[in-house]
């Protein structure tokens, strides 16, 4: 009997089990994940565009989009059928624990590059689920939290206006007037700077302005502090931001509802709200 014949007769697992693979799962290509298969389009050029986002390849992402635009593919389709699908897959793999924070950040960059390119052709901002204004408290340089929030919001289909770090209250109010956001996020790492959140609310009230909710979070920020003033909701994790925004847009939830139904809205156990 030949070697190949012998080999084909065997049930390998009867002889040796690769327990590392049993436990961790076999390495598969991200697009072969059973759920991702349903997200990534099969039709070109959208597939290539989505895959470039999934593979966190900024250059390829940009090149694919440019090529598609040159071939007169509608920019809206490139965004919705390509770039966003790629990002949906990335978010999904993130919740599955297959992708990590840096994957999201890199893939998000690739997606944003592509969207910018499309918007150039479009001549205006693309349609999103809504606009969100994100800022870091005045006097606070720590913006990692805000950057994550912005990234999750964009991945979730929102236009996130990134105001940067150390943003004076007057500027926040001005931005809210201008963009009429459906949601505002404020972050602070230092206890000395988180005190501006109630001041932002006060300033808005003075001008007779209201937003559905201001999500406040970050290092030193705590729920009881945030709930000591109106219009606010304590945000626990950066990736909760688009879910809160969804609840506002789809179900017309207010900041009061968000406080009450937080865990349901974000769809997981949240010890701070239990």
């Amino acid at each position: 009997m030949s070697y190949e014949e012998l080999e084909n007769k065997m049930d390998q697992t009867f002889i040796a089990v690769r327990y590392n693979v049993e436990i961790e799962g076999a390495a598969i290509k991200p697009e072969e994940d059973l759920d991702v298969v349903n997200i990534i389009p099969t039709e070109e050029p959208f597939r290539a565009i989505a895959l470039a986002v999934l593979y966190e390849d900024r250059d390829a992402s940009l090149a694919n989009v440019e090529k598609a635009l040159a071939n007169d593919i509608p920019p809206i389709d490139i965004i919705n059928k390509g770039l966003m699908k790629g990002m949906d897959a990335v978010s999904l793999l993130y919740t599955k624990g297959f992708y990590f924070l840096p994957d999201l950040m890199l893939a998000g960059d690739g997606m944003m590059e592509g969207i910018k390119e499309c918007e150039k052709v479009l001549g205006h901002k693309s349609e999103t689920k809504g606009t969100v204004v994100s800022f870091v408290a005045e006097g606070d340089p720590h913006d990692i939290g805000k950057n994550l929030v912005v990234m999750f919001l964009r991945a979730g289909g929102y236009e996130a206006i990134d105001m940067g770090r150390d943003v004076p209250t007057v500027d926040v109010v001005k931005a809210i007037k201008e963009h009429k956001p459906i949601f505002v996020t404020g972050t602070a790492l230092m206890t000395t700077t988180m005190t501006v959140f109630p001041k932002v609310v006060e300033a808005l009230q003075k001008e007779g302005l209201e937003v559905p909710a201001i999500g406040c979070g970050g290092g030193a920020v705590r729920k009881d502090f945030v709930e000591s003033f109106p219009m606010s909701v304590y945000g626990v994790e950066a990736y909760h931001a688009p879910k809160l925004a969804d609840a506002i847009v789809k179900d017309k939830k207010t900041w009061k509802d968000l406080r009450k139904e937080y865990a349901d809205i974000v769809g997981e156990f949240v010890s701070e709200y239990s």
């Binding site: 390998q12 690769r18 590392n20 693979v21 961790e24 799962g25 076999a26 390495a27």
Partner: peptide, 11 residues
Amino acid sequence: KKMYLTRFERD
């Protein structure tokens, strides 16, 4: 499909 690798081995 005669051998499977972990992500560590694959990467």
